[in-house]
């Protein structure tokens, strides 16, 4: 896939600043802390009102790289999702590919970026949920240094963790082999629909025994439910899950405070039974 039109000379820099290196971007951010950062611009275009200056990082070459390491994958924040799907055909975790397929109509994936997906304010999109379950980490860079944010440790949308003057540069996804997975969305997670639901889960099974499990759900792209205690309890259980263990899952998951207070009755039902049927499937 060609990016030819990105490489040509750029429009007047006083209106939208378009850096070509990370250093240029950081320098601009240091001088203009109120800058709004755009990558693909797909989210920004649905909200045309903006404050301050705009910096578009789509032409920064370092942010458009995908590097495969021994135990993880490093994805530049400005990598378009369509390119990520193509490049990652062989090595992207299947559950992540499944979640990427759900992102909007396919041509949208030519412009939407992985960093942009994570940076939508107050919103946890299906792909972001899957990245959390995969224990992905996000690099946020500022002129003073770099910090890595563990997505799995955050209950809120990542955008609320990013400070002014920081730029999301890379997403690091551990390459671990999962034997079973689901990522399923009901309703429309974006633009935020009051009743959308995403259920995602993954399982590593070894000799019919669960060796690791991760599962979560997001309601209305905002309310996240994940019970690590339950995940820990399921380790060592037989797979497919026995009905006695399924009852335990139903009880513990159903008792989750967010699930009870924020989820609709239908979303609650879909979450609990979606996860149980996933755990009981061969």
């Amino acid at each position: 896939m060609s990016d030819r039109h990105d490489d040509k000379s750029l429009p007047a820099k006083e209106a939208v600043y378009i850096p070509e290196t990370i250093n240029e971007a950081m320098q601009h951010l240091r001088q203009n802390r109120d800058t709004t950062i755009w990558a693909g611009g797909t989210h920004a275009m649905t909200r045309p009102s903006r404050e301050g200056r705009v910096m578009s990082v789509h032409a920064v070459h370092e942010l458009r790289r995908v590097i495969r390491r021994e135990d993880h994958l490093e994805i530049g924040a400005s990598v378009p999702l369509a390119r990520l799907r193509l490049l990652g055909e062989r090595f992207l975790p299947e559950v992540l590919r499944q979640a990427l397929d759900e992102v909007g109509p396919p041509p949208l994936q030519n412009t939407a970026t992985i960093g942009g997906l994570l940076a939508v304010p107050e919103t946890i999109l299906p792909t972001a949920l899957v990245l959390r379950l995969l224990a992905a980490r996000v690099e946020a860079r500022r002129t003073e240094g770099t910090r890595w944010i563990a997505l799995a440790g955050e209950q809120r949308a990542l955008a609320s963790e990013i400070r002014r003057g920081e730029l999301i540069t890379r997403v690091r996804v551990p390459s671990r082999r999962w034997t079973h997975w689901i990522s399923h969305s009901f309703g429309r997670p974006y633009p935020r629909d009051g009743d959308s639901l995403t259920v995602a889960a993954m399982l590593a099974v070894d000799k019919e025994t669960i060796s690791e499990v991760r599962m979560a759900a997001v309601y209305a792209s905002r309310y996240l439910v994940r019970t690590r205690e339950l995940e820990a309890e399921l380790v060592g259980k037989r797979h497919p899950l026995q009905s006695r263990d399924a009852a335990m899952v139903e009880q513990q998951l159903g008792a989750h405070a967010t699930l009870q207070t924020e989820f609709s009755e239908l979303a609650r039902h879909r979450t609990v039974h979606g996860i149980i049927s996933f755990l009981q499937q061969r």
């Binding site: 030819r4 039109h5 990105d6 378009i18 693909g40 920004a44 041509p107 949208l108 030519n110 412009t111």
Partner: peptide
């Protein structure tokens, strides 16, 4: 928001939503 797909165009050789891509991306 691009769901209707009526705004699709080719930008270079990529299909994009004309309503969801900033105009400066088309420069030159």
């Amino acid at each position: 928001d691009g769901r209707c797909l009526r705004c699709l165009v080719l930008l270079g050789d990529r299909v994009v939503h004309a309503c969801r891509v900033p105009a400066y991306r088309a420069h030159n």
